[in-house]
């Protein structure tokens, strides 16, 4: 064994705020260029009449109509309500269950087989069963979304607890912390980053599920609207639906990412 001293000075921040800002502007410009190019290609394809594709203008016009008569807002609200109900219930249950599994080996042993089993089933595959058991009202749709959100988030919360740095727990113990205090003051804050990642995945899963659930049995909602349009070959409406779903999904993801940044800004990023 040699006596080695490892100099591990903290790397000074390589990028100043100014260059960071410039990088952001640059990538925004690139994003805008890509967007414009995409719309242009779409317009060209529509003009060439490929697969009777509707053009950007026709879709924009349709969107205007759907906004004006309130259909889009109604559908949007219906879909969002389902997603948020399912997502809220799913994460509200997933966090305590994940903590329980991470903290108590007994709970882990009892619950893990079920979590792992249901994780392998895509939530959509449960829709037929949910409809038979719960009818065609709101319940089966919210249930499937709940399950999608729950399963994504429970694993993250569990992993978060398991991965808490042992030395942090020891540091708290030697300062006199009881198990309860360790759980509240160390385990919960330390696993927050994992949980927030789980929530983002859960929200994505919930959003993906709602549309599909509405395709099957619904009277309103974005999925229903597209399904309905399909029977009339109404491609404009389908496009409006798709774009709305995409934009909303992106907005929700960004909002959670923002929350994540604020809540876990203490993390050392390498």
């Amino acid at each position: 064994m040699a006596v080695i001293t490892t100099p591990r000075k903290r790397a000074t921040r390589p990028r100043t705020r100014r260059t960071e800002r410039r990088g952001q502007v640059r990538s925004l410009v690139l994003n805008a260029i890509a967007l414009a190019a995409g719309v242009a290609v779409w317009a060209v394809l529509a003009a060439l009449n490929v697969e009777s594709l509707p053009g950007p203008l026709a879709v924009a016009q349709k969107a205007g109509d759907l906004i004006a008569d309130g259909t889009l807002a109604d559908d949007l609200l219906a879909s969002l309500r389902r997603v948020f109900t399912g997502f809220a219930l799913g994460t509200a249950l997933a966090i305590p269950v994940g903590f329980l599994m991470g903290w108590y080996p007994t709970a882990r042993g009892l619950l893990e087989p079920y979590v792992q089993f249901f994780r392998t089933i895509p939530p959509l595959a449960l829709i037929p069963l949910a409809i038979v058991l719960m009818g065609i009202g709101e319940t089966p749709k919210v249930f499937v979304i709940f399950l999608a959100a729950f399963l994504s988030c429970v694993v993250a919360a569990f992993q978060g607890v398991v991965d808490v740095d042992r030395t942090l727990i020891n540091a708290a113990r030697v300062l006199g912390a009881s198990d309860r205090v360790i759980f509240l003051k160390v385990v919960i804050p330390a696993s927050t980053p994992f949980i927030l990642v789980g929530m983002r995945i859960g929200l994505g899963a919930a959003w993906a599920t709602v549309v599909a659930a509405e395709l099957i049995a619904a009277q309103e909602g974005l999925g229903f609207r597209m399904q309905h349009a399909q029977t009339y070959y109404d491609l404009d409406t389908i496009f409006v639906g798709l774009i709305t779903i995409g934009v909303l999904g992106l907005v929700m993801d960004r909002l959670l990412l923002l929350a994540e940044r604020r809540l876990t800004g203490w993390q050392e990023r390498r």
Binding site: D165, T167, A171, G176, P189, W266
Partner: peptide, 20 residues
């Protein structure tokens, strides 16, 4: 019988709570 505040421990990995 266990840790106690009469004995302070300092670890190589600092073990600071990063959120505090």
């Amino acid at each position: 019988t266990g840790p106690g505040p009469d004995r302070g421990v300092i670890f190589q990995q600092y073990a600071l709570f990063p959120w505090l």
